[in-house]
Write a protein that binds this DNA or RNA. Structure first.
Lengths: 127, 127
DNA sequence: GCTTGAGCTGGAGTGCACTCCAGCCCCTAT
DNA sequence: ATAGGGGCTGGAGTGCACTCCAGCTCAAGC
């Protein structure tokens, strides 16, 4: 796959893909005769997984660490599992925070509706 | 309350409190005779609320907009309610994302445990 | 055979949300 | 009365995660 295809299918920009490669989130793909990146389609799943870690608040440094472990193969299974367990814990904490705040939003919306009913805007009169 | 007390009770730093004032998240408190900020304890609830919006992904610009509306009083009830409803929607979306990823973490942890069982690290032998 | 467009590199720039600093003033305790 | 600590201002600096750019090469279509 060309870099533009990977960009289109993952939603990242071409610049971001190259940036991810530079910082070690993506292993450098082989190049074609003209020196252009030629990706294995497997990259799509990996990029989407990275995106999911991103969207759930994992730091770049940790994603890089995970990517490096992954590149080292089976010897790092335990360490990778530990990272995922830690992230699971972080997600659980975020879920609590979000649920609390969701509830608060609902309460406040109800509260504001009551306030709005009391505070009728003085309409411009034309009589 | 002195700024140091507000900082201690909210978890923000003194610098951050002054910064929040500068950008309009906090209305400038009255000053004592020596020109030092003297906060009404009500500030604590407001700061914690801001923190909650922050922790659930609301952008600075939106928090500032909300703070400004709040400072304008009852005339902005409807607009504030709308902002909270929008944020509620955003939170709901994040919840889905987090739940999906939580599930994925669990699956991957199970997967890694299986892989670990198959890949027994060759221990250094001393015989 | 030349233009167009995609891709390449190294490096500079951006936006967000703080965070730190120098140099000053005031109040309190010794 | 003086030394220390807290607070003040305006402005510069930081860290993160990209994002953009100049100037180049290469391959393909007209």
């Amino acid at each position: 796959m060309k870099i533009s295809e990977v960009a289109a299918k993952t939603g990242l920009t071409i610049d971001t893909l190259r940036f991810y490669e530079k910082i070690g989130l993506i292993t450098p793909p082989p190049r074609d005769d003209a020196g252009r990146r030629s990706y294995d389609p497997d990259i799509l799943g990996w990029v989407r997984f990275l995106d999911q870690l991103n969207a759930t608040g994992m730091k770049q440094a940790d994603r890089i660490r995970y990517a490096r472990l992954r590149a080292q193969g089976p010897a790092t299974y335990a360490e990778r599992r530990q990272m995922l367990e830690d992230h699971r814990t972080a997600i659980a904490a975020q879920l609590v925070q979000l649920q609390d705040t969701l509830k608060l939003m609902d309460q406040k919306v109800v509260h504001y509706r009551a306030l709005e009913a009391q505070h009728i805007e003085p309409e411009p009169t034309h009589d």
